[in-house]
C-alpha cells in the first residue's frame, strides 16, 4: 500500500499510489493512514485520482479514517474516478465527505482559506 504524504498550504495531502482500495488492502490502508495522520495539519486531503476501484471494505476503511480524525480534523477527498464516485453515490457517502473534483482544486481551496 503506497501512500505519499506532503504538507501543502496547511493541508496534509495524501496521494494513494495504488489502483485499488479493496478487501485485500483495506486494513493496511487504514493503519497506514492513521500513521501518516500523526503529522499535524488542519485538514487531510486524500487524493484518489489514481484509484480506479474501491469496494465496500475500502469504503469502510476510508470512513474509519474520517471518524478517527474527527472532530478536530477533517478528511476530504479529491479526484474521484467514475467508478469510485459511483460507490460513494450509491452508499450516500458523497453527502458526508467534502469531495473536490481534482487534487489541484483541493490545494487551491486550502490556499484561499489560508491566504485570507
Amino acid at each position: 500500500m503506497n501512500l505519499y504524504a506532503e504538507a501543502r498550504a496547511g493541508a496534509l495531502h495524501v496521494q494513494v499510489g495504488e489502483d485499488r482500495i479493496d478487501a485485500a488492502v483495506a486494513i493496511r490502508f487504514k493503519d497506514k493512514m492513521r500513521e501518516i495522520a500523526l503529522q499535524p495539519s488542519d485538514r487531510v486531503v486524500l487524493d484518489l485520482s489514481r484509484v480506479t476501484f474501491v469496494d465496500s471494505s475500502g469504503l469502510g476503511a476510508i470512513v474509519a479514517v474520517m471518524k478517527a480524525l474527527a472532530p478536530a480534523r477533517r478528511l476530504e477527498l479529491a479526484g474521484l474516478t467514475p467508478n469510485v464516485a459511483k460507490v460513494f453515490r450509491l452508499t450516500r457517502m458523497d453527502s458526508v465527505f467534502t469531495i473536490h473534483p481534482a487534487p489541484e482544486a483541493a490545494a487551491e481551496a486550502a490556499a484561499v482559506r489560508h491566504g485570507g
Binding site: 469496494d55 465496500s56 469502510g60 476503511a61 470512513v63 471518524k67 474527527a70 450509491l90 452508499t91 458526508v96
Partner: peptide, 20 residues
C-alpha cells in the same frame, strides 16, 4: 440505506456491500 444527517461518529463502516 444510510439515513441522511448522521453525525460523523455514527457513520456506518460496513453494510454497504449488499445495498450496492
Amino acid at each position: 440505506r444510510m439515513p441522511p444527517g448522521l453525525a460523523i461518529e455514527d457513520l456506518p463502516e460496513g453494510g454497504f456491500g449488499w445495498r450496492m
